[in-house]
Structures are given as C-alpha cells and as structure tokens.
Simulated assay, not measured.
Amino acid sequence: MSYTHVTAPTQYVEVGGVRHAYRRFGKPGGTPLVFCVHFRGGMDNWDPAVTDGLAANREVILFDYAGVAGSSGEVPETFEGFGDDSAAVIRALGITQADVLGFSIGGYVAQEVALRHPELVRRLVLVGTAPRGGEAEGRDPKALEVAANPVPTMEDFLFLFFEPSEASQQAGKEFWARRHQRTVDVDPLSGPEVTKAQVAAIAAWREQVGERFSELKTIQQPTLVVNGSHDVMVPTINSYILQQHIPGAQLIIYPDSGHGSLFQYPELFVNHVSRFLDSERAFG
C-alpha cells in the first residue's frame, strides 16, 4: 500500500527507554528525508502539501521528539539533547545517512544533528531558523507568548506564520485546512511540560557560546536556507547569517511571507528543496 501524510500509520521505535512515535511514507530507496518540527509541534503540524510533495520522489520520515506529542520520555532542555535524541531515532530506524529538514526550532535540532553526528547527514535544509546566539532585532515580543497558548488557534498561526496581507492570510487559512485533513490516528496535543522544557532550550540557544557563529563553519554538508521576507518569530536576518557562515550554503527568501513561508508557498518550496536534494552538485 502506498501511504500519504494522511494515511501513514503511526509506528513506534524504542531508543534508550523512550518510545518514539514516527511515520514513514513516500518513494522507497535513495536517501530518506527526516523532518524536525517546530516549537511544541508533532507530526500533524506539518503541511501535507509539503510532505506529500517531497515524498513523491523520496521516502519521508516524520517523528515526535522525546516527551512531545506521541512520544514517551522527558523533553530535552538543550538542543544538544534534541540533536542526540534525533540522531538516535535515525539510527534506530536503520538509516545510515539521511537528508535532514528542520523548521524553526527544528532547525536548531537539525544543526545539532549535523554538528554532533555529521556522518548521519548528507544534506541539510534549514527553514525559518537561526544560529546559536542569533539576532533578536525584529522578533515580535508577543510571538513566544502566542506560541505558548495552551491550544493554538488558527488566528495564532495566522499571526505567527503569515504576513498581514490579504494574500498571505488567505494562504494561511488554506494551510490550516490542509493541516487538519488527517482525522484518524492523530498526535495528542503537547502539554505545559513540553512548553516549559522547550522554552528553556530556546533560552539556552539564544546565548552566545565562544566565538559567535564559529561552529557554523564546521558544517560541511550542502545546506539550503529558506525563510520568508518578514519573520516575526525568528527574524529573517538570521537566515542570511546562516548562509554567510555555513560554507557553500545557499539562501532563498520568499516575498510577502513570514515564519511559515514553506506553508505559504508549498509547491515552490517542494520544487526548490527537491532540486537541491536531487542535484548532483547541490549548488549552482
């Protein structure tokens, strides 16, 4: 049976006593693409237009971090911990090398997987994210408060992920509808303990450690950086910083869009990421 974002069954793999929820679907063979999700998110927070679009030519793997949504265990309080946990899941699934796509704090996780377990990562896609000790100017002071609402609403996502323009807001409403297409075997909502632990990890990530951005130069994997033109959660300037400091990285900025640019332009995003992952040289 050929599964999709909506129909792929939730499976479980045990890693260090933690039962991780995951889903696999798409075209088998080749290098799988592992998705690292945003703040408080689980597998159902991804856009089927993105996951199914990318699954047309490769296997896609979604999973829940330890202690989040459908996974057991305790939530790590550092992104080094998230990175080690994610690498362990990849290995437990029998994968020796993967492409890794990280969105928002998932981009922090993806960076740590690449830095701490470089042999596992073939190529890296960083979306709406920032380096350790990145720039805060441009972040809306209400962003984290809204993101921490016990049950985020469509209005919360329209504010956090999309621009105020009519076109961007309409794209946000369409994303919200797609995101809720899966109605069976869905992830449980994350509770306040997830918020608390991930906020602690975010606070630690925002602190500069050693020479600013120096660790980025050690990321040798081909890297694609993507963001919207006005990200109120993780200011867009951070995407430029990532591109400038990761050797050979390339950058795409989508117009009239914010933190959720990949959900506003899903077909374009899928096209750009697919070309990046499939290109023999990855650049040019």
Rank of each mutant, 00 (worst) to 15 (best):
I237E: 06
F63M: 01
F263S: 09
A143P: 02
G228S: 03
E77Q: 08
E280G: 12
G81Q: 12
A114C: 03
G260C: 05
E211A: 12
S279R: 07
G248R: 12
P255H: 03
A98Y: 15
R139L: 05
F162S: 00
K217W: 12
D187V: 13
E166S: 05
I241W: 13
V60N: 01
D187S: 14
A88V: 07
Y22S: 08
R182N: 01
N227F: 03
Q250E: 08
V6C: 08
E59C: 02
S257V: 11
V184S: 00
T153E: 09
R91E: 11
L93A: 02
D84E: 14
G248L: 08
G42F: 02
D64H: 09
A167K: 14
F35R: 11
P247A: 11
M1P: 06
M1D: 05
A171K: 11
H272A: 02
L62A: 04
R58W: 08
L126P: 01
R123P: 07
I61L: 13
V50W: 13
D231H: 04
G67E: 09
E74F: 11
I246F: 04
A98I: 14
R132H: 07
A203E: 15
G172L: 09
A197V: 06
E155Y: 09
N57K: 15
D156L: 11
K27P: 05
F263D: 05
F263T: 09
S214C: 10
F269P: 04
R182M: 01
F39G: 00
Y265K: 06
E112K: 07
V151G: 02
D47S: 03
Y22G: 02
G191H: 09
T4H: 12
F283Y: 08
R123L: 12
P164Y: 10
V15F: 12
S214M: 06
E119A: 15
S71P: 06
A136H: 15
R23D: 06
G210R: 12
A147G: 06
G81F: 14
V194A: 04
I237K: 13
A177H: 05
L268I: 08
F213S: 00
I95L: 15
A114V: 12
S72F: 15
L242C: 05
E145L: 13
G30K: 13
L120S: 00
R281I: 14
M233I: 15
L33D: 00
R212P: 07
P32Q: 12
A197C: 05
D99K: 06
M1W: 09
M233Y: 08
T7Y: 04
A92Y: 03
E193F: 07
T7M: 01
L224C: 07
I202S: 00
L101D: 00
R23K: 15
Q221L: 01
F162W: 07
F63P: 02
R58I: 03
E174N: 15
H180I: 06
A55G: 02
V125G: 00
S229L: 09
K142W: 09
A88W: 07
L242I: 10
A148L: 08
L120H: 04
S190T: 08
H259R: 07
D52H: 15
P192I: 09
G67A: 11
A203V: 12
V186Y: 10
V13N: 03
Q97G: 00
A56R: 15
